[in-house]
Protein backbone atom coordinates (compact mmCIF):
# COMPACT_ATOMS: atom_id res chain seq x y z
CA UNK A 1 0.00 0.00 0.00
CA UNK A 2 1.42 3.35 -0.91
CA UNK A 3 1.11 5.99 1.76
CA UNK A 4 -0.73 9.25 1.42
CA UNK A 5 -4.36 8.46 1.88
CA UNK A 6 -5.11 6.84 5.16
CA UNK A 7 -8.21 4.70 5.42
CA UNK A 8 -10.60 5.39 2.64
CA UNK A 9 -12.12 2.32 1.03
CA UNK A 10 -15.81 2.61 0.60
CA UNK A 11 -16.69 -0.21 2.99
CA UNK A 12 -15.49 1.85 5.93
CA UNK A 13 -17.82 4.69 5.15
CA UNK A 14 -21.11 3.09 4.29
CA UNK A 15 -22.28 2.93 7.86
CA UNK A 16 -21.40 6.55 8.54
CA UNK A 17 -23.89 7.97 6.11
CA UNK A 18 -25.46 10.57 8.34
CA UNK A 19 -28.44 11.38 6.20
CA UNK A 20 -30.19 8.16 7.07
CA UNK A 21 -32.88 8.94 4.52
CA UNK A 22 -32.51 5.78 2.51
CA UNK A 23 -32.71 2.50 4.34
CA UNK A 24 -30.82 -0.36 2.80
CA UNK A 25 -27.54 -0.16 0.90
CA UNK A 26 -26.57 3.16 -0.67
CA UNK A 27 -26.63 3.06 -4.48
CA UNK A 28 -23.23 3.26 -6.15
CA UNK A 29 -22.05 6.75 -6.95
CA UNK A 30 -21.67 5.76 -10.57
CA UNK A 31 -22.90 2.65 -12.30
CA UNK A 32 -22.14 2.08 -15.98
CA UNK A 33 -23.67 -0.89 -17.75
CA UNK A 34 -22.97 -1.98 -21.32
CA UNK A 35 -21.95 1.46 -22.62
CA UNK A 36 -21.18 1.39 -26.34
CA UNK A 37 -20.20 4.25 -28.66
CA UNK A 38 -19.20 4.01 -32.31
CA UNK A 39 -17.93 7.05 -34.23
CA UNK A 40 -18.38 6.76 -38.00
CA UNK A 41 -17.99 3.00 -37.93
CA UNK A 42 -14.94 3.22 -35.67
CA UNK A 43 -15.77 1.76 -32.26
CA UNK A 44 -14.55 4.00 -29.42
CA UNK A 45 -16.18 2.21 -26.49
CA UNK A 46 -17.23 -1.40 -26.94
CA UNK A 47 -19.12 -2.26 -23.79
CA UNK A 48 -18.05 -0.66 -20.53
CA UNK A 49 -19.40 -1.99 -17.23
CA UNK A 50 -18.20 -0.28 -14.11
CA UNK A 51 -19.44 0.23 -10.56
CA UNK A 52 -17.96 3.07 -8.54
CA UNK A 53 -18.90 2.71 -4.85
CA UNK A 54 -19.86 5.90 -3.06
CA UNK A 55 -17.00 7.40 -1.09
CA UNK A 56 -14.25 5.94 -3.23
CA UNK A 57 -11.58 7.58 -5.34
CA UNK A 58 -11.56 5.59 -8.54
CA UNK A 59 -8.91 5.95 -11.20
CA UNK A 60 -9.58 5.20 -14.84
CA UNK A 61 -6.24 4.35 -16.41
CA UNK A 62 -5.49 3.60 -20.01
CA UNK A 63 -3.39 4.70 -22.96
CA UNK A 64 -4.35 7.62 -25.17
CA UNK A 65 -7.34 6.67 -27.29
CA UNK A 66 -8.46 3.92 -24.92
CA UNK A 67 -11.95 5.41 -24.60
CA UNK A 68 -11.58 7.07 -21.20
CA UNK A 69 -12.88 10.45 -22.29
CA UNK A 70 -15.68 8.90 -24.35
CA UNK A 71 -16.75 6.79 -21.36
CA UNK A 72 -16.73 9.75 -18.97
CA UNK A 73 -18.62 11.91 -21.49
CA UNK A 74 -21.36 9.27 -21.71
CA UNK A 75 -21.43 8.96 -17.93
CA UNK A 76 -22.04 12.69 -17.47
CA UNK A 77 -24.57 13.42 -20.21
CA UNK A 78 -22.29 15.12 -22.72
CA UNK A 79 -22.33 12.26 -25.23
CA UNK A 80 -25.29 10.05 -26.03
CA UNK A 81 -24.32 6.36 -25.88
CA UNK A 82 -25.35 4.06 -28.72
CA UNK A 83 -26.49 1.63 -26.05
CA UNK A 84 -26.10 1.00 -22.33
CA UNK A 85 -27.01 2.96 -19.23
CA UNK A 86 -25.31 5.29 -16.77
CA UNK A 87 -26.63 5.91 -13.28
CA UNK A 88 -25.45 8.51 -10.79
CA UNK A 89 -26.51 7.62 -7.21
CA UNK A 90 -29.50 5.83 -8.69
CA UNK A 91 -30.51 8.54 -11.17
CA UNK A 92 -30.39 7.49 -14.80
CA UNK A 93 -28.27 10.12 -16.59
CA UNK A 94 -30.26 9.83 -19.80
CA UNK A 95 -33.78 9.32 -18.40
CA UNK A 96 -33.52 11.78 -15.50
CA UNK A 97 -30.77 14.16 -16.65
CA UNK A 98 -31.63 17.02 -14.31
CA UNK A 99 -31.68 14.77 -11.26
CA UNK A 100 -28.37 13.17 -12.18
CA UNK A 101 -26.54 16.30 -13.28
CA UNK A 102 -27.39 18.07 -10.04
CA UNK A 103 -25.20 15.51 -8.27
CA UNK A 104 -22.25 15.57 -10.66
CA UNK A 105 -19.35 17.99 -10.94
CA UNK A 106 -17.49 17.60 -14.19
CA UNK A 107 -14.01 18.61 -15.32
CA UNK A 108 -13.75 17.61 -18.99
CA UNK A 109 -10.46 17.40 -20.83
CA UNK A 110 -9.81 19.65 -23.82
CA UNK A 111 -13.19 21.37 -23.93
CA UNK A 112 -13.13 25.15 -23.91
CA UNK A 113 -14.66 27.19 -21.15
CA UNK A 114 -16.52 30.47 -21.58
CA UNK A 115 -13.08 32.02 -21.62
CA UNK A 116 -14.17 35.61 -22.18
CA UNK A 117 -15.25 35.64 -18.55
CA UNK A 118 -12.78 36.34 -15.80
CA UNK A 119 -11.98 33.47 -13.46
CA UNK A 120 -14.33 34.79 -10.78
CA UNK A 121 -17.10 35.49 -13.29
CA UNK A 122 -16.79 31.99 -14.74
CA UNK A 123 -17.13 30.24 -11.39
CA UNK A 124 -20.03 32.49 -10.35
CA UNK A 125 -21.68 31.93 -13.73
CA UNK A 126 -21.40 28.15 -13.42
CA UNK A 127 -22.89 28.28 -9.94
CA UNK A 128 -25.81 30.33 -11.19
CA UNK A 129 -26.36 27.91 -14.10
CA UNK A 130 -26.92 25.33 -11.38
CA UNK A 131 -29.58 27.60 -9.94
CA UNK A 132 -27.68 28.97 -6.95
CA UNK A 133 -28.64 32.50 -5.94
CA UNK A 134 -26.21 35.27 -6.77
CA UNK A 135 -24.88 35.90 -3.24
CA UNK A 136 -24.20 32.21 -2.56
CA UNK A 137 -22.52 31.90 -5.96
CA UNK A 138 -20.28 34.87 -5.20
CA UNK A 139 -19.29 33.58 -1.77
CA UNK A 140 -18.48 30.07 -2.97
CA UNK A 141 -16.55 31.32 -6.00
CA UNK A 142 -14.43 33.52 -3.79
CA UNK A 143 -13.65 30.68 -1.35
CA UNK A 144 -12.80 28.23 -4.14
CA UNK A 145 -10.52 30.67 -5.94
CA UNK A 146 -8.67 31.41 -2.70
CA UNK A 147 -8.31 27.70 -1.94
CA UNK A 148 -6.95 27.01 -5.42
CA UNK A 149 -4.49 29.90 -5.32
CA UNK A 150 -6.26 31.85 -8.05
CA UNK A 151 -7.35 34.81 -5.93
CA UNK A 152 -4.77 37.16 -7.46
CA UNK A 153 -5.85 36.25 -10.98
CA UNK A 154 -9.59 36.12 -10.30
CA UNK A 155 -10.17 39.31 -12.29
CA UNK A 156 -8.28 38.24 -15.40
CA UNK A 157 -9.94 36.64 -18.41
CA UNK A 158 -9.73 32.86 -18.50
CA UNK A 159 -8.51 33.07 -22.12
CA UNK A 160 -5.30 34.61 -20.75
CA UNK A 161 -4.80 31.88 -18.14
CA UNK A 162 -2.05 29.27 -18.44
CA UNK A 163 -3.06 25.64 -19.00
CA UNK A 164 -2.62 24.83 -15.31
CA UNK A 165 -4.64 27.82 -14.16
CA UNK A 166 -7.39 26.87 -16.61
CA UNK A 167 -7.52 23.38 -15.10
CA UNK A 168 -7.81 24.84 -11.63
CA UNK A 169 -10.58 27.27 -12.51
CA UNK A 170 -12.43 24.43 -14.26
CA UNK A 171 -12.10 22.39 -11.09
CA UNK A 172 -13.56 25.29 -9.13
CA UNK A 173 -16.50 25.27 -11.56
CA UNK A 174 -16.95 21.53 -11.06
CA UNK A 175 -17.08 21.95 -7.27
CA UNK A 176 -19.11 25.10 -6.88
CA UNK A 177 -22.55 23.49 -6.67
CA UNK A 178 -21.39 20.98 -4.01
CA UNK A 179 -21.79 17.82 -6.10
CA UNK A 180 -21.76 14.32 -4.60
CA UNK A 181 -19.74 12.85 -7.48
CA UNK A 182 -16.76 14.51 -9.11
CA UNK A 183 -15.81 13.30 -12.58
CA UNK A 184 -12.37 14.57 -13.54
CA UNK A 185 -10.86 13.88 -16.95
CA UNK A 186 -7.05 14.21 -16.78
CA UNK A 187 -7.18 16.63 -13.84
CA UNK A 188 -3.42 16.81 -13.36
CA UNK A 189 -2.32 17.39 -16.93
CA UNK A 190 -0.27 20.60 -17.28
CA UNK A 191 -0.63 21.27 -13.55
CA UNK A 192 2.53 22.19 -11.66
CA UNK A 193 3.53 20.14 -8.58
CA UNK A 194 2.45 22.80 -6.11
CA UNK A 195 -0.99 23.16 -7.65
CA UNK A 196 -1.26 19.38 -7.92
CA UNK A 197 -0.71 19.12 -4.16
CA UNK A 198 -3.41 21.73 -3.59
CA UNK A 199 -5.82 19.83 -5.80
CA UNK A 200 -5.05 16.52 -4.05
CA UNK A 201 -5.77 18.11 -0.70
CA UNK A 202 -9.03 19.54 -1.98
CA UNK A 203 -10.08 16.15 -3.35
CA UNK A 204 -9.19 14.43 -0.06
CA UNK A 205 -11.37 16.88 1.79
CA UNK A 206 -14.19 16.35 -0.68
CA UNK A 207 -14.01 12.58 -0.10
CA UNK A 208 -13.83 13.00 3.69
CA UNK A 209 -17.12 14.86 3.39
CA UNK A 210 -18.71 11.82 1.77
CA UNK A 211 -18.07 12.70 -1.88
CA UNK A 212 -16.93 10.31 -4.58
CA UNK A 213 -14.24 10.98 -7.18
CA UNK A 214 -13.75 9.35 -10.57
CA UNK A 215 -10.66 10.53 -12.39
CA UNK A 216 -8.89 9.47 -15.54
CA UNK A 217 -5.18 9.57 -16.10
CA UNK A 218 -2.44 7.81 -17.97
CA UNK A 219 0.07 8.53 -15.22
CA UNK A 220 0.09 5.28 -13.21
CA UNK A 221 2.11 6.58 -10.26
CA UNK A 222 -0.41 9.32 -9.72
CA UNK A 223 -3.33 6.92 -9.75
CA UNK A 224 -1.53 4.58 -7.33
CA UNK A 225 -0.92 7.44 -4.95
CA UNK A 226 -4.37 8.98 -5.11
CA UNK A 227 -6.94 6.26 -5.73
CA UNK A 228 -8.22 3.37 -3.68
CA UNK A 229 -9.92 1.78 -6.66
CA UNK A 230 -8.81 1.51 -10.24
CA UNK A 231 -10.20 0.42 -13.60
CA UNK A 232 -7.88 -0.39 -16.47
CA UNK A 233 -9.37 0.64 -19.82
CA UNK A 234 -8.00 -0.20 -23.25
CA UNK A 235 -9.55 -0.54 -26.69
CA UNK A 236 -12.87 0.68 -25.35
CA UNK A 237 -13.25 -2.01 -22.69
CA UNK A 238 -12.59 -2.39 -18.97
CA UNK A 239 -9.83 -4.98 -18.71
CA UNK A 240 -9.71 -5.08 -14.92
CA UNK A 241 -11.43 -3.23 -12.10
CA UNK A 242 -11.42 -3.36 -8.34
CA UNK A 243 -9.44 -2.10 -5.40
CA UNK A 244 -5.88 -1.08 -6.11
CA UNK A 245 -4.48 -4.30 -4.61
CA UNK A 246 -6.93 -6.49 -6.47
CA UNK A 247 -5.86 -5.03 -9.78
CA UNK A 248 -2.14 -4.86 -9.00
CA UNK A 249 -1.80 -8.41 -7.71
CA UNK A 250 1.52 -7.65 -6.09
CA UNK A 251 3.12 -5.95 -9.10
CA UNK A 252 3.19 -2.21 -9.76
CA UNK A 253 0.20 -0.77 -11.55
CA UNK A 254 2.36 0.06 -14.55
CA UNK A 255 3.67 -3.49 -14.92
CA UNK A 256 0.19 -4.87 -14.51
CA UNK A 257 -1.18 -2.37 -16.99
CA UNK A 258 1.36 -3.21 -19.71
CA UNK A 259 0.60 -6.89 -19.12
CA UNK A 260 -3.17 -6.32 -19.43
CA UNK A 261 -3.00 -4.00 -22.41
CA UNK A 262 -0.58 -6.33 -24.17
CA UNK A 263 1.86 -3.54 -24.97
CA UNK A 264 5.47 -3.92 -25.94
CA UNK A 265 8.48 -1.96 -24.78
CA UNK A 266 10.80 -3.08 -27.55
CA UNK A 267 11.57 -0.57 -30.29
CA UNK A 268 12.72 -3.22 -32.73
CA UNK A 269 15.63 -2.90 -35.15
CA UNK A 270 16.77 0.25 -36.92
CA UNK A 271 17.47 3.68 -35.44
CA UNK A 272 21.13 2.69 -35.05
CA UNK A 273 22.17 6.11 -36.32
CA UNK A 274 20.59 7.68 -33.24
CA UNK A 275 23.58 6.42 -31.24
CA UNK A 276 26.19 7.70 -33.67
CA UNK A 277 27.30 10.79 -31.80
Amino acid sequence: MTGGRAGGPAAGRDGEDGTGAAPGPRPPALELAGLVKVFDGRPAVTGVDLVVPAGSVTGLVGPNGAGKTTTLSMATGLLRPDSGTARVLGHDVWADPVGAKRLVGLLPDGLRLFDRLSGAELVRHTARLHGLPRDVAGRRAQELLVALGLADDAGRLVVDYSAGMTKKVALACALVHAPRLLVLDEPFEAVDPVSAATIRELLARFVRGGGTVVLSSHVMELVERLCDRVAVVADGRVLAAGTLDEVRRGATLEERFVELAGGTTSLGEGLAWLESS
Binding site: G77, L78, K101, P108, L111, R112, F114, L129, H130
Partner: peptide, 15 residues
Protein backbone atom coordinates in the same frame (compact mmCIF):
# COMPACT_ATOMS: atom_id res chain seq x y z
CA UNK B 1 -20.46 30.79 -31.05
CA UNK B 2 -20.34 29.12 -27.63
CA UNK B 3 -18.38 26.36 -29.30
CA UNK B 4 -17.35 23.48 -27.05
CA UNK B 5 -17.99 25.73 -24.05
CA UNK B 6 -21.65 24.79 -24.55
CA UNK B 7 -20.82 21.71 -22.46
CA UNK B 8 -21.20 23.96 -19.41
CA UNK B 9 -24.93 24.28 -20.08
CA UNK B 10 -25.20 20.59 -20.79
CA UNK B 11 -23.29 19.46 -17.71
CA UNK B 12 -25.21 21.81 -15.45
CA UNK B 13 -28.49 20.46 -16.78
CA UNK B 14 -29.65 23.91 -17.89
CA UNK B 15 -33.14 23.52 -19.30
Amino acid sequence: YDGPAFWTHLAAGVR
